[in-house]
Write a protein that binds this DNA or RNA. Sequence first.
DNA 1: TTGCATGCTGTAGCGGCTACAGGATCAAGG
DNA 2: CCTTGATCCTGTAGCCGCTACAGCATGCAA
Lengths: 129, 129
Amino acid sequence: MRTIGEASKHSGVTIETIRYYEREGIVPKADRHANGRRLYDEAAIARLRFIRRCRDLGFSIGDIRALLDLSSTTTQSCWEVRSLSERHLADVRARIADLQEIEAALVNLVQACDDQGDDCPALKVLFAK
Amino acid sequence: MRTIGEASKHSGVTIETIRYYEREGIVPKADRHANGRRLYDEAAIARLRFIRRCRDLGFSIGDIRALLDLSSTTTQSCWEVRSLSERHLADVRARIADLQEIEAALVNLVQACDDQGDDCPALKVLFAK
DNA sequence: TTGCATGCTGTAGCGGCTACAGGATCAAGG
DNA sequence: CCTTGATCCTGTAGCCGCTACAGCATGCAA
């Protein structure tokens, strides 16, 4: 059994965030030592690591709750995991497309700037009717 | 002089958000009619439209404050507008790159799922040490 | 024994809105 | 003149996912 500091190091989740996850019921309440400090076993740390990896992949906390539910049932319905992941993938792709449109518009904007000093063409574009 | 509702329609900024911008000092306090209602002239509406366009391009409120400052000086230092925009463009490109990494990882994850039912390979990957 | 590291709870803040509640006022139709 | 519904006002709380304190209580090593 490890302290919250060790759990943090082994999972990559900060101490404050671990406590936040517990408060929000995203992970179950940690066991406590007689002195009141939280204790984590390997399964608890694996859960934190799982959450961090999912967050790194951009999954929302809501999605992660669902994935943790799926992972705790005996039949880990792979189909549901896949469908959730595919929905998220579509979302990520949509965000990329949005950002690429923004990128193109910014390139235009920057090109409009002629560095000539006053009366910036880029500002004119943004202020136009 | 127009009401806040008309200003909203002509700028594309919602009424609530216009009031929020005023509270936060992002735009100057609107003039008021004798009955206490806000009034907007064309310049004020153009400012709101400007903000909306900048937000659509992903500029932060901080950046927009800077751009509004630049636009209100007589010498609209095009160079500064350009440099701010280029920094933001770099930021957008970095976010695209991040999302593309996530996209690739998600494609892998989804491929790992074999739809075979129990014991999902994707969950295994995420729970691994 | 000293003193630093680590832990605890509780609360407030971030960005950029959004969504009310609860009231005042306006414009149009009967 | 009265009613109705649209619009406006202020003020406050909530969203997400943390992050950053304050103000304490412990633990551990020199």
